[in-house]
Amino acid sequence: MNADRVLAISRRQFYVLWRAPQRWFDMVVWPVVDAVLFGAIGIYFGQQQGGTAASVAFLLSGIILFHVVFQAEVSVATGFLEETWSSNLLNLMVTPLSELEYGAGVALFGLAKLLIGVSLAAVVAFALFAFEITSLGLSLIPLAAVLIVVGWAVALVVIGLILRVGQGAEMMTWGFIALLLPLSGIFYPVRALPDVLQPIAQALPTTHVFAAAHKVVNGHPLPWGEVGIAAGGAVALSALSVWYMTRMLATFRKRGYISRHM
């Protein structure tokens, strides 16, 4: 892997973000909106049931961690989409740049976007609702790491779909992540889901991350068993998504789908 090429792609992504204010929406507006929304819901339900701090912490820790997976996925998927939107795919594909270098460059800059987005949500949660995400302590590190890997894995599936069916698949950038939202037990325990959905929820690595986070928020030590299941699931999902994306790239080259982007 050539580090200069990786950094060149990251720099390209920076220029795109810097000069396209509408691209700040995912990174700036959504985290703030979500933090205000779920903080206020937490306050309201807390007042109804007499446990304001606990419900606020439950919901805000959930939405802040959700933004880790959301930002990781959206930054990589939209980073690739930018190349299709600006007809730059052919230019890139005829360079010595490898798929791994391109992915690393986009993901590297995506981490910076993730840091900004999640930090904004955390600052709003603290400033308006006195909730500190850092109260999760060092547990945050393994939980966030698993969520980042899941986000990147989902992004690879989205990129594979775009390669296969074209730009029409771009809505899945936000669509797949939206599917995780109700199924991952972010704002309620998985047992609150309909019976038919619970096995699906249990199969998702994100469900185990949020279950672990909720335990820590409730004052328990980090359940490493849940983290292990989540990490194993994230590794399996990553392997599947790399396989899928590689297959779709081979199909893209075999069927000459570059003509859609010229």
Binding site: I9, R11, R12, S86, N91, L92, T95, P96
Partner: peptide
């Protein structure tokens, strides 16, 4: 082929030079 949007000419050329 169009030039990618949101890049100045020098930035575009330096990007591809590095690639």
């Amino acid at each position: 082929l169009p030039l990618p949007e949101r890049l100045r000419v020098r930035e575009f050329l330096e990007l591809f030079g590095r690639l």
